[in-house]
Amino acid sequence: METYTLIVLLLAATIRVATPLLLAAIAGLFSERAGVIDLGLEGKMLGAAFAAAAVSATTGSVWLGLGAGIATAVLLALLIGFACITHKGNQVVAGMAVTIMVVGLGPTLGLAWFGLGGQTPQLDGAGQRFMGIAWPGAAAAKEMPFPGLLYSELLSGQNSIVYFTAALVPLSAWIFYRTRFGLRLRAVGENPHAVDTAGISVNGLRYQAVVISGVLCGVAGTYLSTAASSGFVRDMTAGKGYLALAALIFGQWKPVPTLGACLLFAFTDALATRLQGVALPVVGVIPVQFILALPYVLTVWLLAGFVGKAVAPRAIGVPYSKEK
């Protein structure tokens, strides 16, 4: 009974951590399957987190905040697109540059507008945050140990972004493998010359992919500042964009395996939080720094062990020009 509650709570924490990770990973999936390396994930998320919190705090509407978050991330995505699709710049440099810019710009603007040391005001008014949606009968189900707790803690009570994210994996798999757009997107990441000679615009497709990535990063950033916490704080993405990229590679650039990778990373993260200060048999209490490093150690270990088998989209990172 005790273990059961523990497991349910652990899974609930996993979902909370996995949501922004998965959103960012799917964002990267669209961009990278089209052949554009997405190292700007971190920056786009962070920019969206700031914009969403700022607008939500100012207007009192979290939905306007979401709109601002998406708009900001899309603008940043277009900036990356302009640099490395239109002008064939280096994709890694463009993505990193945007990230570095946002890391500085967010707190600077925050300081200028709100004077709170780079943070946004605390979001606690009505409608300023995404709150959990309780499903009918959730309260009653909580009393019933099994399977009631699963229902009340995992299925019910999540916010709209979590449900959206849950639908996103089958949706993007459907787009990639069942639609014309998906076929062209996969083709442009493998052999843009084939796409061009088939009479389709390579740059047009890549811009669409980059914009989709922007939209999803916008949602991810909004989640961080208006759902997972109540406002923007400096560096609040804390490397989640890079972790998402790792999950994407570990998931071999495919939607369902990427979901698996995100859940695994999120679960270790949740587990690490649980393990803080807990005395384990044989080893005793593990220092908190080691525990917090666990997800990253796992990432390195997994990527070192498995990335050899992952086959990246063939044209990834290569700006397209007609001459080869």
């Binding site: 014309r180 076929l183 493998e190 084939a194």
Partner: peptide, 21 residues
Amino acid sequence: MLVENFTVLENVVLGVEGGAL
């Protein structure tokens, strides 16, 4: 000008898929 990890059919229809689905 072929996509190596696509099937023959997918390669032939690329660009003239005949509908969004």
